[in-house]
């Protein structure tokens, strides 16, 4: 057998990345003092998990969805309701909500994925708005916009209370490390290659014996599941929330995170989630200018850097180092 190649090397360096992330979570969790900083990082981590799902769907498989907020909402409501009314232990509730969001995603993906590009974008957008209307109107279940979900009990594992910001930081950090490991494994596998291939050319991919529809459906399901996982963690951390969280705005933010990061590397989703979450802290009166800023970023990146901002920077760097390496 031949020595394993650059592919094994790339996989190893990604694994190193996960290890570094885990170390950063441990160090951050034990040294960060201000709870405000912890909170911002927790939100970044939660959104990063959903953005990783978006990365699988949009970045790897090239299928757009502007309705991910629906699955985020399903995850959040399912775990909040399971915790408040059914008294289900949090870990089980999170797992169950993830599965429920994934199942919902699987169900709607079969018809939706018969559509491509513009029609798929428009259909997922319409789907997202319909779900938002349902979240806001099914008040007996969700509490609607007002009062919404009032108090989800804090997160705990086997009776240990983990509801403090510091404890949640570790919980979300662990979930994020696990998620990115799974996504990296996927990228560096037969399945991940098939998904990247179908983004490049569906016809050619099918011609190699790959059931394109099945793979697209699976990618959509995974993306929905990860959005659901993020939603469940969100519900436990935020405790009180209402339907307005799960509007189209959230779907666009998730898309923005992937585009700001990279459409070709899962690390971009982490960077994008961090960027989009902490951006408001740099600007006073951010709420007023939020949409304008998001709009400018989305537009500029899509016009000049269609592979994502992060990717373009990395590509530029690579080109420069290659040029200096081979004079």
């Amino acid at each position: 057998m031949m020595a394993r190649s650059f592919l094994a090397r790339r996989y190893r360096s990604d694994l190193m990345g996960v290890a570094l992330l885990a170390v950063a979570v441990v160090i951050g969790g034990s040294t960060i003092v201000k709870s405000y900083h912890l909170t911002m990082l927790i939100y970044s981590g939660i959104y990063a998990i959903a953005a990783l799902g978006m990365f699988v769907l949009f970045g790897i498989a090239g299928q757009i969805s502007i309705g991910q907020a629906a699955f985020f909402g399903v995850g959040a409501y399912a775990s909040a309701l399971a915790a408040t009314h059914a008294g289900i232990p949090p870990v089980l509730a999170v797992a169950g909500s993830t599965a429920m969001a994934a199942a919902f995603g699987w169900l709607v993906s079969r018809p939706l994925l018969r559509l491509t590009t513009n029609y798929l974008a428009m259909a997922t957008l319409a789907f997202g708005v319909i779900c938002f209307i349902l979240f806001a109107q099914l008040r007996s279940l969700t509490g609607g916009i007002d009062p919404g979900i009032v108090a989800t009990p804090g997160f705990s594992v086997a009776g240990f209370d983990l509801s403090s910001a510091r404890a949640m930081f570790f919980v979300v950090g662990a979930a994020l490390c696990g998620t990115i490991l799974l996504v990296l494994n996927l990228v560096h596998s037969r399945v991940g290659r098939a998904l990247r291939a179908l983004k490049g050319s569906e016809v050619a991919t099918a011609g190699l014996g790959i059931d394109v529809v099945r793979y697209k459906v699976a990618a959509f399901t995974l993306a929905a599941g990860l959005a659901g996982l993020a939603g469940a963690l969100f519900a436990y951390f935020q405790s009180a929330f209402n339907a307005s969280v799960f509007s189209v705005g959230l779907s666009i933010e998730l898309l923005l995170m992937v585009i700001v990061g990279s459409v070709s590397s899962p690390w971009g989703a982490l960077f994008g989630a961090l960027f989009v979450t902490i951006l408001p802290t740099f600007l006073e009166d951010f709420e007023q200018y939020k949409l304008l800023i998001y709009g400018v970023i989305l537009t500029v990146v899509m016009i000049y850097m269609p592979d994502g901002f992060g990717s373009t920077v990395v590509q530029l760097g690579r080109r420069l180092t290659r040029r200096t390496a081979t004079p």
Partner: peptide
């Protein structure tokens, strides 16, 4: 937007219009 796009696939052009949609909303808000 459209004329300056580096990549003129159906999807990336649509994404640019999505960007402008958000931008218009932000502009009106401001």
């Amino acid at each position: 937007g459209i004329q300056r796009a580096r990549r003129k696939t159906v999807l990336s052009l649509a994404m640019i219009t999505i960007g402008f949609s958000v931008l218009y909303r932000g502009l009106m808000q401001v």
